[in-house]
Simulated assay, not measured.
Amino acid sequence: MRQEFIELLESNLDHAENFKEKFDHVQDGQDPDFVTVCCSDSRVLQDHMWGNEHPGEVFTCSNIGNRVFQDMETGEAVSGDVLYPVAHTDTKTMVVVGHTSCGAVTATYKDLTEDINEPSGIRHCIDLIKDRLKDGVEKLPDDLDDSEAINRLVEYNVDQQVQFLRNSDEIPEDVDVIGAVYDFQNVYSGDRGQIHLINVNGENSVEKLKEENPEVSERFERLWEP
C-alpha cells in the first residue's frame, strides 16, 4: 500500500473527529437543497468550493466534462445520478459547474481540430461532448490561442448542459438550473477558487442576469457570449 494512501487514511481520522456530531440529522435519509454536477478533476473541490461542511446539503455528482446526460437505447436522457435528488428528494436547484482549463473540453477541442487517439472509455466520454461543442468551436473568434479558446468552450459546454436540463421533460419547471465556472487560474476577476455564474435557466446574457439577480450581480461574469 502506497504511503500517499496511508496518509489519506490518517487524514480521514481528522475528518471523522470533526464530523462525528454532524450526521445525526441524516441518519434516516437525505433532503439536499442542491445537486451539483462537476467535472471529475482533482483540482475541483466539490464541497469545499461552497465552504460546505454540512452532510445532506449538497448532492454531488461528477464525471468527465460535467455532463448531465447519458446514452440510452431510446436516446439521450438526464443522467440518473443527476436526476435522483430531483425525482426523489424534491431538490429544487441544479448547478452545472465547469472549470478553467478543463481536460475534457481540451481533449474534445483537439479532437475537433486535429484528431486524437484515446482509450475507448475516454473516447466515449469525448464523443458525448463532441456534438455539443462542435458549433461552439466554429463560433470562436479567430484571434484566440488554445487556452483562451478552451476556457470559452468551457462556458459553451456549461450552457449546453444547462439547456439540456431545461429542455428535458424529466426536470420540473420550478427547478432552477444554474451554470457556473470554477476558476483556479485567475482567468476571471476575483481570487482563485471563486465560482462565477454564467447561466440561469438558459439565460446567459450577463447584463440581463445582473438585472434579474441584483443581490448577486457581482458574481456574474463571462469570457464570451456566443
Rank of each mutant, 00 (worst) to 15 (best):
G75F: 03
E4R: 11
Q46L: 13
V86D: 09
G56F: 04
E221V: 07
V37K: 01
R152K: 12
R123F: 02
E155Y: 05
V86A: 10
F59T: 04
D191P: 06
L128Q: 14
K134A: 14
V58T: 06
Y109V: 01
P119L: 01
T108M: 02
F5Y: 13
D131I: 03
S40D: 09
E148L: 05
A180M: 09
D24E: 11
V105D: 04
E212W: 11
Q185K: 15
V95W: 03
S101K: 14
S168N: 04
L209W: 02
N117E: 14
N167Q: 13
V105K: 04
F184H: 13
G65S: 08
Q160L: 08
E225R: 03
A180F: 00
E155M: 04
L112D: 01
Y109A: 04
D169K: 10
E10F: 10
T100H: 08
E76W: 10
D47N: 15
E212M: 12
S62F: 14
L197T: 07
E218N: 12
D146Q: 12
R192W: 00
R152H: 00
F34A: 02
F220I: 12
I129D: 07
G56E: 03
N201I: 02
E21A: 15
E138D: 10
P32C: 02
D146V: 11
N186W: 10
V154S: 00
P32Y: 05
L197W: 10
V200R: 07
L128F: 06
Q163G: 07
S205E: 03
Q161R: 04
F69K: 14
N66Y: 07
L133Y: 07
V216L: 13
S79V: 02
A107V: 08
D90E: 15
A87L: 13
M1D: 12
E76H: 09
A77L: 03
N204C: 10
Q160A: 13
L223Y: 09
D41L: 04
D146G: 05
F34C: 03
D115K: 15
H196A: 04
E118N: 10
H54Y: 14
D24V: 10
T113I: 00
Q185I: 12
M72Y: 10
S168W: 04
Y109T: 06
M49W: 07
K208T: 11
L133I: 00
K130M: 01
V35R: 02
E148S: 11
E221T: 08
L165A: 04
I64P: 06
N117Q: 12
L112A: 01
E118Y: 13
I150M: 02
C102I: 02
V78E: 05
V82G: 00
L223S: 08
V105Y: 01
L144R: 03
F19W: 08
W224M: 09
G51Y: 06
S40N: 11
R123M: 10
F23V: 12
H25S: 12
D191Y: 11
E138K: 15
P141T: 03
L165D: 03
K22L: 15
G136M: 05
T74L: 07
Y188P: 02
Y182K: 01
L153S: 04
F5C: 01
V177F: 04
D146E: 15
Q161H: 05
T91R: 08
S205C: 05
V97A: 00
D143H: 11
